[in-house]
């Protein structure tokens, strides 16, 4: 009996000891890793468009970290879903069409002649990419616009268009033939798959 008690005691002490070591090292050697939310946030496209149902990219990142689906971001599209799947260790899935479809990159354009200067779009813009003042014409800073679409709905005179980003020689992606007005021959290579 005393042997049994002794064994229990030894085991208990050992458990305590190891527990203490583990607890100590957990505090002492804590690895300061990039919190998951920040890692997810870094992958999201930062359009702040809210199409995912959350007010901005960071809130969606928090939601993903808490177990929400990874396929709710239309601006990021397939590429973002793939990266998120990698990070979260889950299978990539197709974009949830309830939140929108992947589209070409667009930016907002204000038809300035029609703008009445109501400042509603300025308030809606999540990245302060629209400048203007009350009763003054507004305009979009092209380089800052993320194409989130949020300014289109508030405009009382519907003078905001989302225009696709134009391809120029500088950002040409070497899809020869596709951009050149159709009549020009493709570089027709029989591709192997």
């Amino acid at each position: 009996m005393s042997l049994f008690a002794f064994a229990l005691m030894v085991l208990g002490l050992l458990a305590l000891l190891f527990g203490a070591i583990l607890g100590y090292s957990a505090v002492k050697f804590k690895v300061e890793s990039d919190p998951l939310v920040d890692q997810i946030d870094a992958i999201l496209p930062q359009t702040q468009c809210g199409q995912c149902g959350y007010p901005g990219c960071k809130p969606y990142a928090e939601a993903i970290a808490n177990g929400d689906e990874i396929n709710k971001c239309p601006p990021g599209g397939e590429a973002t879903i793939k990266k998120l799947a990698d990070l979260m260790g889950v299978e990539p899935k197709p974009l949830d069409s309830a939140h929108g479809v992947e589209d070409v990159k667009k930016i907002a354009y204000i038809r300035e002649a029609e703008c009445i200067g109501c400042t509603k779009c300025i308030q809606a813009c999540p990245v302060d990419a629209i400048i203007g003042a009350a009763k003054q014409m507004h305009t979009v800073i092209i380089d800052e616009c993320t194409g989130c679409d949020l300014c289109v709905a508030p405009c009382p005179v519907d003078c905001i268009d989302m225009v696709p980003v134009q391809e120029t020689p500088a950002n040409f992606k070497w899809h020869i033939g596709r951009n050149s007005g159709g009549t020009v021959g493709n570089i027709d290579i029989k591709q192997v798959s």
């Binding site: 496209p45 930062q46 960071k58 999540p126 990245v127 800052e144 992606k173």
Partner: peptide
Amino acid sequence: AEIKAQLDEQQKSEKAKLRFEQRQ
């Protein structure tokens, strides 16, 4: 071209994030 576009995109999204946070 794709690598360059991705890099541009990344820089742009970092800037957008910063602007969003500053606005918030």
